[in-house]
């Protein structure tokens, strides 16, 4: 038999950016521990809908931890208490029976609130647009195996590139810094020969874009690394700092 538990969800409700918000409690009733927390929110939303109330707005899409759309603070932790887990992968078996679960949106100056748990993270796209790519047009690339890349470099680049752009690093940082996010892309391309021609320009442009968007500076609290669902290592942030200093 499926194990059942009871939870109380305390969810931040806010109709819009210019309207006041407040917490609202929703008892789960008996629910199977095999459900994910987002599936429980789906269930709560269906009940609200049938009662003629507005359901809780939240971003989500792939529900398998890779698209980066979902994200909220659960009991004060980005994506909840389980490490290396996105919100959509957090299951009720990871939570204590009978407990209160407090769910709030990611909060940061650069992530303006839209509604309930939905925030605007388009600032991350604008940082990427400043230089998070190799400037190569389609059609002129050389044969793929022309440049061998040491396996360890390729592995490090892939580890740095595993960022899903969810914003948990920002939401968990006391300075709302996006430096782990920036560091992932800078580090990925710094590890690879294809990233070399634009190496200096890229790190300067991306860091200054992050500043422009209102993200804070890194204070070495390391909350970002702990909150990152892909466990992006602080090493990438350190490499970005080196890249930045040598580029200036």
């Amino acid at each position: 038999m499926e194990k059942l538990i009871h939870l109380t969800l305390r969810v931040w409700r806010q109709p819009g950016p210019d309207r006041p918000g407040r917490f609202h409690d929703y008892p789960s009733g008996p629910v199977a521990t095999s459900l994910s927390l987002l599936e429980l929110l789906d269930l709560v939303n269906e009940r609200l809908t049938l009662n003629g109330e507005e359901p809780i707005a939240f971003d989500h899409d792939c529900r398998e931890g890779i698209c980066g759309a979902c994200g909220a603070m659960v009991d004060g932790l980005a994506h909840g208490p389980k490490s290396e887990t996105t919100l959509c992968q957090l299951h009720l078996r990871d939570l204590a029976d009978g407990g209160l679960v407090v769910i709030e949106p990611f909060r940061a100056l650069a992530f303006p609130l839209i509604k309930d748990l939905v925030v605007d993270r388009s600032a991350l796209d604008r940082i990427m647009a400043a230089g998070g790519y190799v400037s190569v047009d389609t059609g002129g690339a050389p044969e793929a195996n022309v440049i061998p890349i040491p396996q360890s470099d390729a592995d490090q680049a892939l580890a740095a590139a595993s960022c899903i752009g969810c914003g948990a690093c920002v939401a968990s940082c006391p300075h709302a810094s996006a430096m782990l996010f920036v560091g992932g892309k800078v580090s990925q391309l710094a590890c690879l020969p294809q990233g070399q021609p634009e190496r200096a320009r890229r790190v300067l442009a991306m860091v200054s874009a992050a500043d422009r968007e209102g993200f804070g500076a890194c204070g070495n609290h390391r909350e970002c690394e702990a909150a990152c669902p892909k466990r992006l290592s602080l090493r990438h942030l350190a490499r970005m700092n080196r890249e930045y200093l040598s580029a200036r």
């Binding site: 190799v134 002129g140 690339a141 044969e143 793929a144 592995d155 990925q188 690879l192």
Partner: peptide
């Protein structure tokens, strides 16, 4: 070819290929 030129970190063998 194009994706490698973009810096996509494909998995590689020990020799780097």
């Amino acid at each position: 070819d194009h994706c490698v030129a973009q810096g996509i970190p494909f998995t590689r063998e020990y020799g780097g290929y």
